[in-house]
Amino acid sequence: MIKKFIHQFASPKTFLLQVDKFYGLIFFTSLCIYIFSIIWGLLFTPEDFVQGNSFRIMYLHVPASFLSQSLYIAMAVSSATYLIWRVKLAAYFVIAIAPIGAMTTFIALVSGSIWGIPTWGTWWQWDARITSTLILFIMYLGLISLHNSFSNYEKADKLLSWLVIVGAVNIPIIKKSVDWWTTLHQSASITLTNKPSIDPVMLYPLIGTIIGFFGLIICLILISSKNQIFIREKNKSWVKDYV
């Protein structure tokens, strides 16, 4: 029964119609929130005692690093849905999310290392978080290249889903082991996790940027899945009617 329900609900056609209905709304709301909070964060918050003005990179870095892993989890959930219930839309999501996940991870990495120059005095440090983010980035690239190397979409979807699930099992292991690895090598490096409790004046714009960035990424996922649907189902009559 669940299967039937999901199949009815998750048909590409209904999805596409819903996307068209809500896309503009989500896009403009989140764009406004994002721009507003970025301006607020970059220009209207007081300077940080310790880090000076470079702490403002936080408003750009934190949303991206926050989403880089959430997107992988979203992919893993979609993959499981695809493998268990054979919902095609879920398979489209998996490959639609992959490049966007790679992009957010890339933003997180680059902004993190630029942030590192004024704060740590070095743009790269073999810190646990940075290393696991780098590994995550490589994993995203691996996923994309795996999917690209098969011309049979269904085969590619299945293999990709298996790999995503195997990777999802491994992400916590990688994180834990990398944490464990850094504890011996360097105990006193600055980690971003245990920063002193953040001032609400700085926190509100941060929440704003997270929400706004999240909305924009959702929009990206929506149009990239729309793209996938068009690629895969271009021979179907409803797509022709739709266009």
């Binding site: 590994i135 490589i138 690239l141 195997v166």
Partner: peptide, 27 residues
């Protein structure tokens, strides 16, 4: 995973999974 697409792809894809083992070995 990369059955007839050459072993490089397979290596790229599984190397991240093998990294924790390297950490344990180093430790």
């Amino acid at each position: 995973l990369s059955l007839n697409k050459g072993s490089v792809l397979g290596a790229i894809v599984t190397m991240p999974i093998a990294l924790p083992v390297l950490i344990v070995l180093g430790k």
